[in-house]
C-alpha cells in the first residue's frame, strides 16, 4: 500500500512531462513527414521527402559544420582553458582575495543575457564604429580591420569567440567546485613525495575531477548543437548563410519560409544528435564509476 502511494506523488510530474516534453517530440516527429505551413489548414503527406531535401541542402552541411566547429572550439576553450583557470585559482599561486576577485570576474559574463551580450559584441565588431577595429587601428594593425560579422571568413569565429568569453567562467566554476571536493590529504601526501604544482595537477587534480570534466564536455557539446540566440542576434545566419547553425536553419525553414514539415525534420535531426551526445555522456560517466 505504501509503495503504491508513491505513484500519486510521481503522477503529476509524469503527466506534465508526458504532455509538455514527450508528446511534442512525438508530434514533431509525425509532422516531419508532411508538407505544411503554419497558416494553412491543409497538409500533404510527403514521406521521407523532407529528410531527403535536408541532405540535399547545402545550408544543412554548413550548419552542421558550424555546430561542430563551435563544439570543438568550445570544448578546447571553455573546458580546457576553464580547467586551467580553475587549477590556477585553486592553487597556491595567488592570494585568497585575488582568488575571489578573479572567480567573480570570470563568472560574471555567464550571468548576462545572451541577447544583451550578442548586441554588445555586435557593436564591438561593427566595421565603422566598432571597438575592435578601433583598437586595431590604434595599435598600428589597421590592415587587419574587417567587417568581422559581415566577412564570411571571420563571421562564425567572431560569434564563437563571444561565447567563449561568456561561458569559460561558468565551466571554470563547475570545475572549481569539483576541485574543492578532492581530499586535501592527497595533495599533502604528494608534497611529502616531492611533487611540484604541475605534477599535482596532472596526477591528482585532473583525475579527481574527471567526472566533472566529462559532464562539462557534454554540456558544452550539447549546448553547441542547441545554439540559436547568439547567431540570431548577431548575424541571423548571414552573410549568405555562412553562419547558419542547425537551430537557425530550422527556425528559418519553419518561420521565415513557412516550411513547417521541413523545420520539424531538421528538429528531429537536432534531437537525434543531442540525444546521442547524452547517451555517450551517460555511458562515459557509468564506465568511469565502474572503473
Amino acid at each position: 500500500m505504501r509503495r503504491k502511494s508513491y505513484i500519486f506523488f510521481i503522477l503529476p510530474a509524469l503527466i506534465m512531462i508526458l504532455i509538455f516534453v514527450y508528446f511534442p517530440i512525438i508530434q514533431n516527429f509525425y509532422f516531419s513527414f508532411f508538407k505544411m505551413s503554419s497558416y494553412s489548414p491543409t497538409r500533404q503527406f510527403v514521406g521521407l521527402n523532407n529528410y531527403r531535401m535536408i541532405f540535399e541542402d547545402d545550408v544543412f552541411y554548413i550548419s552542421l559544420r558550424n555546430n561542430t566547429l563551435y563544439a570543438v572550439i568550445s570544448v578546447i576553450c571553455q573546458v580546457g582553458f576553464g580547467m586551467l583557470l580553475a587549477i590556477i585559482l585553486e592553487g597556491s599561486f595567488i592570494g585568497r582575495k585575488l582568488k575571489v576577485f578573479f572567480r567573480n570576474v570570470y563568472f560574471m559574463p555567464s550571468l548576462l543575457s545572451v541577447t544583451a551580450v550578442g548586441l554588445m559584441f555586435y557593436f564591438i565588431y561593427n566595421p565603422n564604429i566598432g571597438l575592435l577595429n578601433g583598437i586595431l587601428e590604434r595599435i598600428g594593425l589597421g590592415d587587419l580591420k574587417t567587417a568581422w560579422l559581415g566577412n564570411p571568413k571571420t563571421a562564425i569565429y567572431a560569434v564563437i569567440a563571444m561565447s567563449q568569453w561568456q561561458y569559460t567562467g561558468y565551466i571554470m566554476v563547475l570545475l572549481l567546485v569539483a576541485i574543492q571536493k578532492i581530499p586535501h590529504e592527497q595533495y599533502e601526501a604528494a608534497e611529502i613525495d616531492g611533487a611540484n604544482s604541475f605534477k599535482k595537477a596532472i596526477h591528482i587534480t585532473i583525475p579527481g575531477i574527471r567526472d566533472m570534466i566529462t559532464v562539462c564536455t557534454v554540456i558544452t557539446v550539447i549546448g553547441a548543437f542547441k545554439l540559436f540566440t547568439e547567431i540570431y542576434v548577431m548575424t541571423q545566419g548571414g552573410p549568405y548563410n555562412r553562419t547558419q547553425v542547425l537551430g537557425t536553419f530550422m527556425y528559418r525553414a519553419a518561420f521565415a519560409y513557412d516550411e513547417m514539415g521541413y523545420g520539424s525534420a531538421i528538429a528531429v535531426i537536432i534531437f537525434a544528435i543531442t540525444f546521442l551526445a547524452s547517451l555517450v555522456q551517460i555511458k562515459i560517466v557509468y564506465k568511469g564509476r565502474n572503473n
Binding site: N126, P127, N128, A147, W148, G150, G238, P239
Partner: peptide, 11 residues
C-alpha cells in the same frame, strides 16, 4: 562604401 553586407540600412 566598404563592407555593405555588414552594415544595416539605417546605419
Amino acid at each position: 562604401n566598404q563592407f555593405p553586407n555588414a552594415i544595416k540600412h539605417a546605419e
